[in-house]
Design a protein around this nucleic acid. Structure first.
Lengths: 160, 160
DNA sequence: TGAATATCGTCAAGTATCTTGACTATATGG
DNA sequence: CCATATAGTCAAGATACTTGACGATATTCA
């Protein structure tokens, strides 16, 4: 226990970016742990990020590439993994010979259901910690932020 | 433009975790882009995450390992990179023959200064978008969340 | 119609960021 | 002095990305 490094100026950052990062990280860690504990060992944060862009009724792979802000090759590799795990399946798009449709398997839908449940539990914990009022304000601010997209969002790379 | 996939149920997730993730990602993308544009080509999100735990007057490497929730080997590799870039330097700890002190070089301190500036600009943009009131509420909620740490935070792995 | 062009998905190879395991050197506490 | 814990390093491997090149299908329009 040394602690003689001047004592002052060793505070952690306190700005939106840092706070958002910490909060996001904490949430993901908690969620992923619960998902794995629920038997979905294939679950990872990167995969979760992609699944979030796949609606329950499926989507076209190309649409997915537009939404997730990563390269199409990255999307493909993640899909390859999820397909190998039996969470998703890919079918040829009947309307476009080039395209593929991505949709959930039974296993995938089960995971979504469990995820919804876990999500609610975590939210409940948050509300316990900071109160309904603050929680509602948090959601409100985050939604507004998303709505008023300042379009500082870089386009998906690798899409040339 | 096909859009016949049932039309409904293709909404994106709308819960704290997702929102936090999206917001955090957007912030980091914007910040990193500005940092690189400001001439700090070595800047990356992972490195930023570590730098956030290094106060301006430096720290001991071991202290860093406790704070950042990643393995000591990961910390070391990030430090190796930052040292090679000339952002940080490592000195032997005069009080502990095993330890090392990590501190910023001039280049590192310059980057911190630019970072502070960029950070303020981004915040200003956020306030423009959602208003002072919502922004304040956002910070308040995030700080509360951090304060009432539910200790669902996994300990740093690789620390056995 | 048919040739130029764009889009969709894939294959291959490389980089950044993390992990676990094994090890060395120094410190600490009987 | 010896047992054990701590600080840092070395090595190897996994995951999540990247860019580049390519084949197959669609679209556009002269």
């Amino acid at each position: 226990m040394v602690k003689e490094l001047d004592e002052k100026s060793d505070a952690l950052p306190d700005h939106v970016g840092w706070r958002l990062w910490q909060a996001s990280r904490a949430w993901q860690t908690e969620f992923a742990a619960a998902m794995r504990a629920a038997g979905h060992a294939w679950f990872s944060e990167a995969r979760a990020g992609l699944l979030g862009h796949i609606p329950r009724n499926g989507t076209r792979q190309s649409a997915l590439i537009e939404r997730a802000a990563i390269s199409k090759q990255a999307v493909q590799q993640l899909l390859d993994g999820l397909e190998a795990e039996g969470v998703l399946e890919r079918l040829p798009d009947p309307r476009d010979g080039r395209g593929k449709l991505v949709r959930y398997t039974r296993k995938g839908l089960d995971a979504l259901r469990d995820g919804d449940h876990i999500k609610l539990e975590i939210e409940r914990g948050y509300i316990d910690r900071i109160g309904e009022r603050r929680f509602a304000a948090l959601m409100d601010a985050l939604r507004s932020l998303d709505a008023e997209q300042g379009d500082a969002s870089g386009d998906a790379p690798g899409s040339k």
